[in-house]
C-alpha cells in the first residue's frame, strides 16, 4: 500500500478529517426518545429489537439498489422482482431438504438457511446479469425509459414466477431452531429477528470493508462520483457496472430469503410490496451511500414499529414523514455522495 512516513512534528498540526456523527446518532437518539412514550422498558426492548431486525432486512433488500443507482445512475424499478425471486429460490432448497429444517439440530437448520441464501444469490445474480444485458443496457442515460423498461421487466419476471411456481401464495416454515423467542424476564426477542440482525450486521460490515479497504471498493466509490475519469485512468467501467448490478441483484436475493422466512408466505408480488420502503431508505440515506442506506433502514423500521405501537393509524404515513423531515434537514440525504 502506498504509505508515507510523517514524523511527529509533521503530524502535530495536520488537519483531521471530520466524521459526520450526527446522522449516526439519529438511531440511538430515536430509540431513547421513544422510551418515555412507550413507558414499559420490556415493551421498548421488544419493539426496538423487532425494529432493528426489520431495518436489517430492509437494508439487505435496499443496499444493492443504492449501489446500482449511485454507480450506474440507473433507476431500477425491477429491483423488487429480485427480492421475490430470491424468496422463491428457497423452494429449490426446501423441496429436497425440508427435513433439515425440521431436524432438532442447529447445525442442519443453519446449513439449510445457508444453502437457501447461496442458491437465491446465485439465481438472482444470474438473472441480474441477463436483466442488465437485455433490459437495462439499452437505456443507459435515460431515466424515463429506465423506469418504463424495468417496470416491464418486473412484470415479465413476476409472470414467469407465476408460471413456474403457480399464482397461489406458498407457505414456508422456519427452521426449527429459529422458531420461538428468547425470553429475558419480561423481554421477548424472536429468534429469527435476532438472526436477521446478525446477518444484516455481517453483510453491512462486509460491504463497508469491501468499499473502504479494497481496490474494487475504491473503484466503485470513484465510479459513483465520476465514471468518466475512472475510464480515463484505464479501468473498464462497463465491467464494473455489470459486476455491481449482478452483486446488487444477489443482495436483493439475500434480502428476499430473509423476507420470505420472516413472512413465511411467498407471493410473486412480495418484492414489489416493499419497494416503497426500499426507495424511501435509499433516498433518506443519500443515493449511492451504503452507510446512509443502513442508517436510513434502521430509522424507518424503528419509527414504523414505535408509531405502530403508539398510534397505529399513523403507522402508514410515518415513513413518508421521516423522509420529509430528513430531506428538510439534509436535502441530499443523510450521507450525500459527491456526484458528477
Amino acid at each position: 500500500m502506498t504509505d508515507i512516513a510523517t514524523n511527529a512534528a509533521d503530524t502535530a498540526e495536520l488537519p483531521r478529517a471530520r466524521t459526520d456523527w450526527l446522522p449516526l446518532l439519529l438511531v440511538p437518539a430515536l430509540a431513547l426518545l421513544a422510551l418515555p412514550f412507550i413507558g414499559n422498558p420490556s415493551s421498548w426492548v421488544t419493539l426496538t429489537v423487532a425494529g432493528l431486525a426489520m431495518g436489517m432486512m430492509i437494508f439487505l433488500m435496499a443496499s444493492g439498489l443504492t449501489l446500482v443507482f449511485g454507480l450506474m445512475d440507473i433507476i431500477n424499478f425491477g429491483h423488487g422482482v429480485f427480492i421475490s425471486l430470491g424468496a422463491y429460490a428457497t423452494l429449490i432448497v426446501l423441496g429436497p431438504l425440508a427435513a433439515w429444517g425440521q431436524a432438532d439440530s442447529l447445525g442442519l437448520n443453519l446449513a439449510l438457511m445457508g444453502l437457501c441464501i447461496l442458491v437465491a444469490m446465485a439465481l438472482t445474480a444470474a438473472v441480474g446479469a441477463v436483466f442488465e444485458r437485455v433490459i437495462v443496457r439499452p437505456v443507459y442515460g435515460s431515466h424515463l425509459k429506465q423506469i418504463l423498461v424495468t417496470m416491464g421487466g418486473l412484470i415479465v419476471t413476476e409472470q414467469a414466477i407465476h408460471a413456474i411456481w403457480g399464482a397461489s401464495p406458498i407457505p414456508i416454515a422456519l427452521p426449527a431452531s429459529l422458531r420461538g423467542a428468547y425470553v429475558l424476564g419480561d423481554i421477548v426477542m424472536e429468534r429469527y429477528r435476532v438472526f436477521a440482525v446478525v446477518i444484516g450486521l455481517v453483510v453491512f460490515a462486509g460491504m463497508e470493508l469491501l468499499l473502504n479497504r479494497t481496490r474494487i471498493g475504491l473503484l466503485i466509490r470513484a465510479g459513483v462520483e465520476n465514471p468518466e475519469m475512472v475510464e480515463a485512468l484505464g479501468y473498464r467501467i462497463r465491467r464494473l457496472f455489470v459486476s455491481v448490478f449482478v452483486a446488487g441483484s444477489a443482495l436483493a436475493g439475500l434480502g428476499g430469503v430473509m423476507w420470505a422466512f420472516y413472512r413465511q408466505t411467498l407471493t410473486a408480488g412480495m418484492g414489489m410490496e416493499v419497494m416503497v420502503l426500499v426507495f424511501i431508505v435509499i433516498i433518506i440515506g443519500g443515493l449511492g451511500s451504503v452507510g446512509g442506506c443502513f442508517v436510513g433502514s434502521l430509522l424507518v423500521a424503528l419509527v414504523a414499529n414505535y408509531v405502530g405501537f403508539l398510534a397505529p393509524k399513523l403507522a402508514l404515513i410515518s415513513n413518508i414523514l421521516v423522509m420529509a423531515l430528513v430531506l428538510v434537514w439534509r436535502p441530499q440525504g443523510l450521507f450525500p455522495v459527491a456526484r458528477r
Binding site: M1, L218, A222, V224, N226, M229, A232, G234, Y235, I237
Partner: peptide, 30 residues
C-alpha cells in the same frame, strides 16, 4: 478510453475530476 489510458496516455481534465470522497492517498492508489 481505458485502452488509450493503458497505452500510456494520462489525462488531466480542465475540471480536474479528482475523486472528492476519496482521500488524497486513495486518489493516488487508484
Amino acid at each position: 478510453t481505458p485502452d488509450i489510458a493503458r497505452a500510456g496516455i494520462a489525462y488531466v481534465p480542465e475540471s480536474m475530476a479528482i475523486f472528492t470522497d476519496l482521500t488524497v492517498r486513495e486518489n493516488i492508489v487508484l
